[in-house]
Design a protein around this nucleic acid. Structure first.
Lengths: 155, 155
DNA sequence: TGAAAATAGATGACACGACATACATTACAC
DNA sequence: GTGTAATGTATGTCGTGTCATCTATTTTCA
């Protein structure tokens, strides 16, 4: 297999295996990796509309993540209110139960993931990998959500 | 956001966007990226059991991809026979229609993807990225299927 | 040999993820 | 101001992906 195919499948494989490992860590709290990403963003930004959240989520294309959020609302982790400024728009916030899950489960899991990455690669390798992935993602239009996160620092 | 998180989300984002773009190229033939991976492996290996195919697929964990294949059987692209040596096992092969789809749609798509990657990154960058991803995947247990492919060269 | 373990695959359940479509609300153009 | 376009969200559909469980067949080994 040529290098281009290998790179492509390595990215796929790393995403899949990473997702499985993260899912395992989150499983005791019955939270999925995608749900954790949404909760984490809500913990950082306090209030978001579905559309804004969708723009920040890497795990889903811009499409508004109605159903992802609905499940969190059903479980009492997220509160969903109609915005008073624009009745089309939703104001999403974490409930106290959502904040608990974030603090006790998701944040520790994120810390653990970072640690695992630092143990897998040297700081120098992480820097190089980051730079190459940024270039690759930039050229292939894959960094939309990450760019949106940089432009929209917190709340 | 720190570098570890960025690397993690860049890999996720690249996988997602890559998948969307490949899906678009394959859409006219109503073939999904996962189906294309399976067909491509069958084109290379002539005959595979479900289990062997599962071991070579990056897109699914080792779990036998019964349903992925069932859809291809339903569409007449793959033939599924009970092995005579071991009646538990299946012998999967491409039908002539499956070979056609491979030659006319999937193989050209794969060539296009490789070209797109070479246009996104320099040869030197591809080499570096490949090396770093190999290290990362090796340490994190993410290269199972790719290793299996190397050990099982063609038929 | 014959019971237990291992293996190959099928299937149910659940949550994505992408796309298309539908609906309500707001913005805009004139 | 009103008709029209744009926007925010909901929902249907389809194909994954993952895990758990089930059945049929083969291996193992006491």
């Amino acid at each position: 297999m040529n290098l281009e195919d290998e790179v492509r499948y390595l990215i796929l494989g790393l995403q899949r295996e990473g997702n499985r490992q993260i899912a395992q860590v989150l499983a005791p709290a019955a939270v999925t990796p995608s749900q954790a990403e949404a909760i984490s963003l809500l913990a950082e930004h306090e209030v978001l509309s579905l559309r804004d959240l969708g723009a920040l989520l890497v795990c889903e294309s811009g499409d508004s993540p109605s159903r992802l959020i609905d499940r969190l609302v059903d479980r009492g982790l997220v509160q969903k209110e109609i915005s008073t400024l624009d009745r089309r728009s939703l104001s999403l916030t974490l409930t106290s139960k959502g904040v608990d899950i974030y603090r006790n489960v998701i944040e520790p899991a994120e810390v653990g993931i970072r640690k695992a990455i630092r143990e897998a690669l040297s700081q120098e390798e992480i820097n190089q990998l980051h730079e190459l992935l940024m270039r690759f993602a930039g050229v292939t239009n894959s960094s939309g959500a990450l760019n949106a996160r940089r432009e929209r620092q917190s709340t």
